[in-house]
C-alpha cells in the first residue's frame, strides 16, 4: 500500500486551488486513484541529479504594432459582454 499521504481533505484542497468543483463521489474515487498514481511517482526518487543547462538562446524581436483581432472578433465567443468589454461575475 501507499504511504503517500493522500486523504479526501487534500483532494478537496487541491480541487479548490484548481477552481474545480467536485462531488463527494469524485473525491472518493480521486483519493483512491491518486494514492496509486502518486505512489508510482515516488520512483522518481531513484533518478540521479543531472546537469541540465539547456543550450538555448533567447529569441528577441523589436516590439512593433501588428495586425490583431478586432474587438468584435475577440468578444465573439464570450457569453456576456458590455460596452465592448468581457463581463465576468462579481469578484467578491
Amino acid at each position: 500500500m501507499s504511504d503517500t499521504p493522500v486523504d479526501p481533505d487534500e483532494v478537496r484542497h487541491v480541487a479548490d486551488l484548481a477552481r474545480v468543483d467536485v462531488d463527494d463521489d469524485d473525491v472518493d474515487r480521486f483519493t483512491e486513484q491518486f494514492a496509486d498514481i502518486l505512489d508510482y511517482f515516488e520512483t522518481l526518487d531513484e533518478v540521479p541529479e543531472v546537469e541540465r543547462d539547456a543550450d538555448l538562446v533567447n529569441v528577441m524581436r523589436p516590439d512593433e504594432v501588428r495586425e490583431s483581432l478586432s474587438q468584435e472578433e475577440a468578444l465573439a465567443n464570450a457569453e456576456e459582454t458590455e460596452d465592448g468589454y468581457f463581463k465576468g461575475p462579481n469578484v467578491s
Partner: peptide, 22 residues
C-alpha cells in the same frame, strides 16, 4: 468569461469558475 462554457451559477468569481469548470 472570454470563451467556452459558462455555468449558470450564483456566487462570486471563484465560485462561478469552479462550477463552470465542473
Amino acid at each position: 468569461i472570454r470563451y467556452g462554457h459558462r455555468a449558470d451559477a450564483e456566487g462570486n468569481w471563484n465560485e462561478e469558475f469552479a462550477q463552470t469548470r465542473k
